[in-house]
Amino acid sequence: MSVFIHLQTVNDIVNFFQLDTLIQHPLIAVVDFSQVNESINAETKISSDFYALIFKTYNRNNIKYGRKVIDFQDGSLICMAPNQVLEMDNEIDVSENMMGWGLFFHPDLIRATSLNDKMKGYSFFSYEISESLHLSEKEKQILYDCILKLRAELQENIDLHSQDILVSNIELLLNYCSRFYGRQFITRKHSNNLIVAQVEKILSNYFKRNDINENGLPTVKSVAEQVNLSPGYLSDLLKKETGKNAQDHIHFYLIEEAKNSLLNSNKSVGEIAYSLGFDYPQYFNKLFKQKTGKTPVEFRSMN
């Protein structure tokens, strides 16, 4: 029988990992996994109110994130937003098998800071585990140095500067993660190009078959599922490879189909909008002008 555990406070983190000591702060925790004292039972599902960055190595593959098994053997980093779920597939004897660190910080720590507005830009928090960040030795050390700085600051007495220093170091860590993900996209360029080709084929076939009449506009989520990626990772991959995110690719095929209908049929603009899955023609008009610089009527009259 599976057990679900939700971590709401730093004390919950201490208790869950059975830590002898943890430098206390109400909104942030840095965990040294080599100091964890107790095995984690099989079939345990874990979520939290915290953003979490977890770097761990194991001798076995025994954690699931979503539907994917995590392979931490080579050392990889996962980033979780609040309320995402990790699932333990087999019992972990952490005293022998687990090394690494975890950073947990509550949204309230950054809520009144500029970092709060930047969090949506760190799209890797929405990636699937199969899209985790695989680090070089140099990259591991850079991130660990950030963790050491956070740990050192947590050892200081809380004062007027504590939050600024903690948040700036978290932001530095996240910016390094963005850089390293950028490197990972580059090193996987061949496989990325295959995915770009897959996406183009999926969208091309979708509009050729007129699936839009039955199923409506394709979504980023539906396309991502067909290439076995998360929507966030797919959009970032396409942006890196083509300069356009997943939604832009969908809109490209949509506008091409709209152009064909405008020039090769006598349908009204409203009829074309409905046939393309728009509930309201004004939304179609707005998107068409945004992408082409002309309204549908202007485009039809000029051609």
Results as ranks from 00 to 15, higher is better:
K201N: 12
D248M: 12
L254H: 05
N62R: 12
A112Q: 14
L276T: 03
D74M: 10
K201W: 08
R209F: 12
Q18V: 12
S265W: 09
D12A: 08
K286W: 07
Y127M: 04
F72R: 03
L217N: 04
S136N: 09
C146N: 09
Q8Y: 09
M119C: 13
N169W: 02
Q247A: 09
E225S: 14
Q35G: 06
D248S: 15
Q184R: 10
V196T: 12
V14N: 05
L27N: 06
K45G: 04
N90A: 13
E91N: 09
G121S: 10
S95H: 10
N303E: 06
L160T: 14
A81R: 13
N157S: 13
W101N: 01
S95Y: 13
H161Q: 15
L143F: 04
S76P: 01
S301I: 12
F55M: 08
A224S: 15
E139L: 09
V167Y: 02
L287I: 05
N260Y: 14
G243I: 11
M88A: 06
I28T: 02
I129G: 04
Q184K: 14
D12H: 13
V14K: 12
K291S: 05
T295A: 04
P281D: 08
E241W: 00
G75A: 08
L160E: 15
D211E: 15
E225D: 15
I110V: 13
L229Y: 02
Y58G: 03
Q35S: 12
Y206V: 06
I165S: 07
F4C: 08
I272T: 01
K118Y: 08
I212T: 13
Q73I: 10
Q8N: 13
I46C: 05
V196R: 02
E214G: 04
K56T: 07
D71P: 02
I63S: 00
R188Y: 09
M80H: 04
Y280M: 09
I46Q: 02
G182H: 09
K259D: 05
K267A: 14
Q84V: 10
Y181D: 01
S275Q: 13
M1A: 10
A258S: 14
F299G: 01
L166F: 06
I54F: 11
S178W: 05
P281H: 11
T113G: 03
I147P: 00
V167S: 04
N193C: 09
D49N: 13
S268P: 04
I142K: 06
T187L: 12
L86K: 04
V10A: 05
L234P: 00
E200T: 10
L27I: 08
G232W: 03
Y253A: 02
N193T: 05
H6Y: 12
H134T: 10
F17C: 01
L194E: 15
I28R: 01
T219M: 11
E241M: 04
E91F: 03
K294Q: 13
L173I: 07
Q184I: 09
F72L: 11
E137L: 13
S261F: 08
A197D: 15
V297D: 07
M98V: 15
F72P: 00
Q290F: 07
D74T: 11
V223Y: 00
I23W: 02
V269L: 08
N245L: 01
R111F: 07
G121C: 12
K118R: 15
K239D: 06
N175M: 11
S162C: 11
S230A: 05
